[in-house]
Design a protein around this nucleic acid. Structure first.
Lengths: 254, 254
DNA sequence: CGCAGTTTTGAGACTGATCAATGCCTGTGG
DNA sequence: CCACAGGCATTGATCAGTCTCAAAACTGCG
């Protein structure tokens, strides 16, 4: 496990915001020079973490905000006896850690699902952002509303969909998000989570999740040999999921 | 069903922000004169709606943001076949409708649970707020983060808690929220939702919800003769819920 | 008084949980 | 190059929590 402290990355040179690999991506809105310069001063460093590393724990007073440059993370909550609910997955360009900068304490934990590179922002500067870059403040709210949107969807899934609908809708969502980032090869994507982790996101047991995946496979909708996921029938999958195939809006990121 | 259009309330005089009944409440942070004046210009009217009225529907392009002055609402999503998941309840001081002002379209519906009075803000002015009142922009983000916090909790509840834990934790949360608003009489509060609505928030059937409430009652933890809820054993209820009794932070509102 | 919506109760069915193995792949060290 | 360990995936059998269906009792209201 490597957890490089913010501000000092070991071998790798830090990426300048100007040259941020995410900038060119069509999924994200364009930035002005001025905004870029500010974001650069806002950024305090990078965090490189191996898969499995805990970025922060519930109850922590994390002093940072993070944008994912590469890799996946997941947010989760635990009950005392160890039951775990994964709240959402974070992909490149996604933002997390807002709560601590608002309330001073996180209500959930975050773990690196794959090796990740995170862009780190100190929370003391958040206020500065609102004061001098209202458009970026607006973007922050936008991103918070987007997270809420995804949570609403997850809550519907976990609360009201059957097992097969749940698996179908989460795989579908994840596929669409990867596709939006331009990281899909046709209907083929890399989905790095284990069945156990998927189960924890769905509110199901891992055994039943496995059996449900098999069913989707035997119905010729998907083919998943972790981490390679092939969506063989997108419309069919959406039908089983009881979901619509809306396209995702272009979005900001910090 | 009465749905008074924003900007024209029939008999009632509109409430000036300066005299907003919520202002004095300890649950909320104090505002400066300048902020109050702006919020007053931001406000475009009031919406008075009877219990059961739909404020807006999923897919709508709602042009407004709302703060609840009095009464309860709930946010929900539907599946095609009518299964309903209630995402969260809104109480006085709570804010909703942010998504439409960010993405132009709501992903969920909102219904008045009781008769409500809502304070209406036009979404065109949201940008103005960020530009000229950064502290209010910050507050908006704060409120979005708070909603996220509540959704995280709900997702954990629905995904990983058992029926009895679910009922206990939602009743507990609702009690604490009412208490924070100073609307509790000791351990007694008015909880206006039906068992069916509670069930839809919990991801349970209404029959099983009823049986579970009975169990909590027979264990002498609560006493609920709708709408009168009496929490007979707060600590015991928290224990059953597998939840902690943290106090809620003072919060902003618009 | 009667209606409509809500709560309550019982019985049986079923989805998904739990338990317990087994198989499989990958990386590691001998 | 093989043996082994550890993590994951897979499978079968049994169990139980929750759902569905159906009907009755209750409550507030016109």
């Amino acid at each position: 496990m490597t957890l490089t402290p913010p501000g000092r990355s070991p071998n790798t040179e830090q990426i300048k915001c100007k040259h941020c690999p995410l900038r060119g991506n069509e999924a994200f809105r364009a930035f002005t020079e001025k905004e870029l310069d500010f974001v650069q001063t806002f950024k305090s460093g990078e965090l490189v973490a191996d898969a499995g590393t805990t970025i922060f724990l519930e109850g922590n007073n994390s002093a940072h905000l993070y944008t994912i440059l590469s890799g996946w993370v997941f947010r989760y909550k635990l009950l005392d006896d160890g039951r775990r609910q994964i709240l959402n997955f974070g992909l490149p360009g996604d933002f997390f850690g807002l709560q601590s900068s608002m309330f001073g304490e996180m209500d959930h934990s975050v773990e690196a699902l794959t090796d990740v590179v995170l862009c780190v922002f100190p929370r003391e500067k958040v206020w500065h952002l609102y004061e001098h870059y209202p458009d970026l403040g607006f973007d922050l709210t936008w991103l918070a509303a987007r997270e809420q949107f995804m949570l609403d969807e997850n809550l519907l899934t976990v609360g009201r969909r059957t097992a097969i609908e749940r698996v179908a809708s989460v795989l579908l969502n994840v596929f669409l998000r990867i596709q939006q980032l331009g990281m899909a090869r046709g209907r083929r994507v890399d989905v790095p989570f284990t069945q156990q982790q998927l189960a924890d996101a769905l509110g199901l047991s891992h055994v039943h999740t496995n059996k449900t995946i098999k069913k989707l496979t035997s119905e010729n909708l998907i083919d998943w040999h972790p981490p390679k996921l092939h969506i063989k029938d997108l419309e069919g999958l959406a039908r089983v999921a009881n979901a619509e195939l809306a396209s995702l809006p272009v979005r900001p990121f910090i």
